[in-house]
């Protein structure tokens, strides 16, 4: 990296990110000025209620969607100016694990590796390695159509890793999984992170964020309303409450997203906490 970020190796840096959707019913401001700074090697959690703008942010950071305003660098690469450069450094598993039901797991991973520029023998070896990593070796030669939800999630995770990305984006990686599969995914995320990959994950599960994440940010209606380590956020709330009770991350989440809003004429207005 030659752009002077070497002293502060930040894996993700977003400044003033805005996304406006233009639909038939007018404009929707899904993300309204998000600043993010994720350090290299972190597991960063991105939390927020339904429709808060998590997936939209992930799509902008991973070059899948244009940025209306603001800028974003991932692994030092400007995602808007050099999307292909960024794609080499980014792995992404989206919320709807989009897989091709007519291919086998192995074929899907091999194809993905080929598209990242590997030779066919390299791609085959990488597919084998990844099937092992996500424990799908036995199912590798079956069509994806017959996979369970958990198997699809794990395959999706594997496919995000084919090119050994520096930064891995996971949009709700455990939604819809049974408790055992969830633990498997957590273990995999930890293992991937220990190998040096920065992980940015969105989740609806506060426990997941508490267990996995070094730092979290909470987004609500397109704006970041809290940011910090889980314990710092809990401490902060305990101090503000001042009643001696120990808040959970759930309390932090509700405080950040619930009490800062009031319904006015069916229109949601923001009030500063």
């Amino acid at each position: 990296m030659t752009n002077g970020q070497a002293e502060h190796p930040s894996a993700i840096r977003a400044v003033g990110l805005v996304k406006t959707y233009r639909g038939s019913t007018g404009e929707i401001e899904a993300v309204r000025g998000v600043d993010l700074e994720v350090r290299s090697g972190e597991v960063f959690g991105f939390l927020g209620p339904n429709g808060a703008g998590k997936s939209t942010t992930v799509r902008m950071l991973t070059t899948l969607m244009t940025i209306t305003a603001g800028s974003a660098h991932v692994a030092g690469v400007d995602v808007a100016a050099d999307p292909d450069g960024a794609r080499h450094k980014i792995g992404v598993a989206l919320q709807e694990a989009g897989l091709d039901p007519r291919q086998t797991g192995r074929e899907l991973l091999t194809l993905q590796a080929r598209l990242f520029g590997m030779s066919s023998s390299e791609a085959a070896a990488r597919a084998e390695e990844l099937l092992e990593l996500v424990e799908l070796t036995d199912a590798g030669d079956r069509r994806i159509k017959g996979y369970s939800g958990g198997m699809k999630r794990r395959l999706d995770l594997a496919s995000a890793l084919v090119h050994r990305p520096d930064v891995l984006f996971l949009d709700e990686p455990t939604t819809g999984l049974d408790p055992a599969s969830r633990l498997t995914v957590w273990a995999e995320v930890r293992r991937i992170n220990q190998l040096g990959t920065t992980v940015f994950l969105t989740t609806q599960y506060l426990e997941e964020a508490d267990q996995l994440c070094d730092r979290i940010a909470i987004i609500d209606q397109g704006r970041i309303v809290r940011e910090g380590t889980p314990s710092a956020l809990k401490d902060d709330l305990a101090r503000r409450r001042g009643d001696g009770t120990t808040p959970t991350l759930d309390d932090v989440f509700l405080d950040a997203t619930g009490r800062t809003r009031v319904q006015v004429d069916g229109d949601v207005k923001e009030i500063q906490a």
Binding site: L64, H88, G98, P101, S159
Partner: peptide, 16 residues
């Protein structure tokens, strides 16, 4: 079908 199912996005995430 691929667009609706999301696999299209996986292809778009590759540097091709």
């Amino acid at each position: 079908e691929e667009i609706e199912g999301g696999y299209f996005d996986k292809l778009r995430a590759t540097p091709i």
